[in-house]
Write a protein that binds this DNA or RNA. Sequence first.
DNA 1: CCCTGATTCGC
DNA 2: GCGAATCAGG
Length: 180
Amino acid sequence: MSWTDERVELLKKLWADGLSASQIANQLGGVSRNAVIGKVHRLKLSSRGRASQKQARPKKPSAPRQPTVRSAAPRASVSNVVASQSMPRTNSAGATALKADYAIDEVAEPIYQSAAEVVVPMSRRLSLLELNERTCKWPIGDPLHEDFHFCGNDSGEGTPYCKGHAQVAYQQNVDRKRSR
DNA sequence: CCCTGATTCGC
DNA sequence: GCGAATCAGG
């Protein structure tokens, strides 16, 4: 898999969103986290944090790399490497999505008679790894189905859902209380 | 051990 | 330019 313009753009976006190299590698597919890190450095967008730079590594690992056994050492193929990488169970955004059942009553005003009447705009169909602090974390579909995704519309600051899904959440909560 | 990014250097 | 191997660390 090569670094097409599209893949580079996605890399830049995800890196700017704060995803780790391995998360980005899983997202892109066909590349290792080392490949992602290497590309990030070549693109010179490594800093990201602007936070304290800790301490610069003393340079010069000067690793005694294998002198010449390369040709005779098959080692892992790309597919093996990808398959052996454990899928991250969550990220900061995903964790938010998993515990998003708080104080729903305060999220939105009661506008609709039932959740079925709420109209939610077209979602951006984001994957878990594409979520960030400002994306709607409303899950759509069967988590075990390949088409599972998240709404991904703008959720504003400090709220887990976009406006439409906040109202859906509210109304579902109301419906649940009624039927109880 | 799990993970993170950083670096080197054969290709 | 690419990325595995490796390092250094949380």
